[in-house]
Amino acid sequence: MRLGRWAWLLPLPLLAVLGLFLFGLGELVWSSFAGPEGFGLDRYRQFFARPDYIDVLFRTLWVAALTTVVSLFISYPVAYFVARYRGRKDWLLVLIMLPWLVSVVVRTYGWIVILGNRGLLNEFLGWLGVIDAPVRMLFNTTGVVIGLVHVFCPFMILAILAVFLQLERQLEEASMSLGAGPVETFWRVVLPLSLPGVISGVMLVYLMSTGAIITPLLLGGLRDRMLGTQIYQEMFQLFDFPKAATIAVILTVTAFVVVLPLQWLERRVSRNLKGAA
């Protein structure tokens, strides 16, 4: 089919979306700098002057980092298993994505049932005799990390799986034929070759964790706010839009401080693996 002279119309929707996005972003950054006493860093000074906000910032980074690391350790073996599974992989993929058929809110409420002081897990541990008093796993950092790991693991699994699926089985066999046992083969061949997937999974989960709202809102304690919930609170409870904008900018900047080096690393690693596929 020839598009002819109407072809220039095609990019228009894209430009419209891009324009709106950039306008929103510009507006956000602008309102964080524009204060009652004119343009300046006033709002940022106010933010960093409050120890409770600093706490929120560091808690956000800590929870995001913890969520990322735990997700990685759970997802890596799962991705490897799926990649090497000789039967039908598509069913395993369906299983991995299945939680996404249920809304995040519902799934998070599910965790309340499991993790609560009188929840399934505590009752079970008590029945086993492992604990005397219920372990607090809800409305604190533990609860938030468990909830976030559950929500984000599929992303990590898919990111790593994408690399594993391109990894030729024969590379591992070559390693073994040269005398490397399974452990040595993992460290010398499998892990280095899967790094691009690991890095993109880490970036993905870390970014999503820093911006998470629903899970920390439901599973986190009132005192354990994160930047996402703080923004939510400023906007919908206190209607302080400029402050919300300021926190949003700080959130974005801190997220990218971690992601940019990772991106550089990924590009480096991928370049070394050129011709791997």
Partner: peptide
Amino acid sequence: IGLVFQNLALFPH
């Protein structure tokens, strides 16, 4: 044993 594969399986990294 030594093994040379059809697709060579050289380590790209």
